[in-house]
Design a protein around this nucleic acid. Structure first.
Lengths: 235, 235
DNA sequence: GGTCCAATTCAACGAATGTTGAATGATGGG
DNA sequence: CCCATCATTCAACATTCGTTGAATTGGACC
């Protein structure tokens, strides 16, 4: 018995390409770039796989679009903190970097793994796209370290580029691995793992780069500020 | 015109399963676990894909065998350094850990990416196999940190488990990412990237964990000792 | 020299993937 | 009301993948 012929044309609800990107982000986060299939993304978005090709050129183009949506806000916030006339002590500015990173990347394992994977794979020449996105971010953080050296807060022989690499990468490693590793190796519950890890890490890192390692850190603001007003409401 | 019928039976040279593992390691290193195909591994080993199934149960079994071949030697060397009666200063023992890690994992991006990938993916419960291999290694390194605290070399409030995580993970991040990132962001040539990164990192790390961060590090032995006698000669 | 086993290859299967072309319905302007 | 354009779906394509069963051969042993 043949079913009633399915209606072909458009659904009553138009599909916003941003909705597809949301779905892609979610599936990428769960399965990784390579393993995430277009069919899974389409299912998540509630549409046909072919529709994705109407809005995007290819799977890779979706990745590009995801980057374009994700990076500029991060860079914008970082550049505020990195402004040369920011009067706050270097430790606080660096902690602010950690907080910005955290707010934007904590809930998005897809972007984290995509970027890292792309860098690892592209040994020959990391894709220009990624480099164009990452370089300004690195430079913003690095300039805070440079200013810290100039102001006498940080040790004079600090390798500021590597210092940037260490700060940012370990943050992402903590996000990616500690929630799995720490509960298994000790009893720490899932949520505390990342928070604890980041605080211990920042304390260690600061001692490593400060001109006066034994001076106590100033009180650090909470990692994430709850903004209960803004909720994800999607019609 | 049909070619001469290919000989079916065994080649004159028997295929050592270790040869297949070598090939798998190489292809895994190049393409990653998921993307590496059995056909590519078979080609690299110079045999038919089906032969792999004669020697191993599945693709995953090859991974298991790779781990079993790789980890015990690392653990064995680490446990020598971690012996409680080792009289060397803590800084030197930790640098020895770095050197051991380096010797065994530097040339093997496959293992590095496999382990990390497995941990990231297995958020629910990192595969027991991996945990069984990793836990003793973590504990060996951690015991050096614990002894360092007890001896008064390291700060009393050191979180030794996270300290282990930081040391080992950043080492692997340096191996995986710096050769690609550093030459792109500055002029540093490929080979120096890892060596420079590791020295700067260890210096920063030591300041972060030492009881007296400003005391200079003792002279550190070279990262890798050339052993020109042992060459990879395969008939 | 015959027989058996271990090692190897060939060919194919079913499933999944990225992608495309044609068909179809809705929407809005004239 | 008609028609063009847009958004969507269906069905299929070619590839690739992990895996398997049958066929084949070399060597060891009697």
């Amino acid at each position: 018995m043949p079913h009633a012929p399915r209606p072909r044309g458009p659904k009553p609800i138009r599909m916003d390409p941003d909705r597809i990107l949301d779905a892609a982000q979610e599936v990428f986060a769960r399965d990784g770039l390579r393993a995430a299939s277009l069919r899974a993304i389409a299912k998540q978005a509630g549409c046909d796989p072919a529709l994705i090709y109407y809005h995007f050129d290819s799977k890779e183009a979706m990745f590009t679009a995801l980057l374009a949506r994700r990076f500029p806000p991060i860079l914008q916030e970082l550049e505020v903190v990195a402004a040369a006339d920011d009067p706050r002590p270097t430790a606080l500015r660096l902690w602010e970097v950690v907080r910005i990173y955290h707010r934007h990347l904590k809930a998005d394992p897809a972007i984290r793994s995509l970027i890292r994977g792309e860098i690892v794979r592209g040994a020959e020449g990391l894709s220009d796209l990624i480099e164009a996105r990452i370089r300004p971010i690195v430079m913003a953080i690095r300039s805070i370290l440079d200013q810290g050296v100039a102001r006498g807060d940080l040790r004079a022989d600090l390798h500021t580029l590597l210092g940037t690499f260490f700060l940012a990468r370990m943050h992402l490693e903590i996000l990616d691995l500690l929630p799995t590793v720490l509960p298994r190796l000790m009893g720490l519950p899932h949520d505390q793992a990342v928070e604890t890890g980041l605080h211990v890490w920042f304390d260690l890192y600061w001692r490593g780069i400060a001109r006066d390692p034994l001076a106590p850190l100033p009180p650090l603001p909470e990692l994430t500020v709850d903004t209960p007003a803004i909720k994800e409401t999607r019609p």
